[in-house]
């Protein structure tokens, strides 16, 4: 199966999901429009709260790239990057991903702007963003919400899963799309 036919099948995904959600909601007698607006309102507030994150990340990366500092980092990291066969942007995204969700989202959008969503790095960034979560943030919030200070092996285990997601993303994107 080529990447083309694989992708075509998935274009049914979102329309299908929306259809199922609305049909089922209708059958269960949900006041769909009112409930939708309620959720959208929450989404609006969430997106507005994201704006400062976007500005911060865009400015930091913009300065970092335009100044040429990124070329120095690429040169320094090139031995590692050659081994894992991934671009620098992907490595930076991997680090940011486990620390801050909004920052990782902003970084992915920045990658789309620079290289396009259908470039190798664009697809890799998409896969990485979709297959991992804000490990440190979730562990910190969930444990502190119930007053746990000794987290035992939760953090190493989370990091293990992050590495697995990164390695799997690089592998599969190279395999399908290259």
């Amino acid at each position: 199966m080529t990447a083309e036919t694989l992708g075509q099948g998935f274009s049914w995904f979102i329309p299908g999901l929306i259809f199922v959600v609305f049909l089922y909601g209708h059958m269960r007698g949900v006041r769909i429009f009112e409930v939708f607006v309620e959720g959208a309102q929450e989404g609006f507030m969430m997106a507005v709260k994201l704006i400062p994150y976007l500005i911060g990340i865009y400015v930091a990366i913009g300065i970092f790239r335009e100044s040429g500092a990124i070329d120095i980092l690429v040169a320094l990291l090139s031995p590692i990057l050659k081994v894992i066969k991934a671009p620098t942007d992907a490595l930076l995204l991997f680090i940011v991903r486990s620390l801050s969700g909004p920052a990782a989202l902003s970084m992915t959008m920045e990658i789309f702007d620079q290289h396009g969503p259908d470039s190798f790095i664009g697809r890799l960034a998409s896969t990485m963003l979709g297959s991992s979560d804000t490990t440190f943030y979730i562990i910190a919030v969930y444990f502190s919400s119930v007053g746990i200070r000794k987290t035992r092996y939760a953090i190493p285990l989370g990091i293990l899963a992050d590495f697995a997601s990164f390695a799997a993303s690089v592998y599969i994107v190279r395999k399908i799309f290259l």
Binding site: F10, F13, T127, G130, S131, S132, A161, A164, S165, A168
Partner: peptide, 25 residues
């Protein structure tokens, strides 16, 4: 929104990567 020709094409690769990481966990 970023102008992808086929925005859903990454569903398969995401599914693969997320399965690997969950299995690893």
């Amino acid at each position: 929104s970023a102008g992808s020709k086929n925005p859903s094409e990454i569903v398969g690769s995401v599914l693969f990567a997320t399965t690997c990481s969950t299995l690893a966990a």
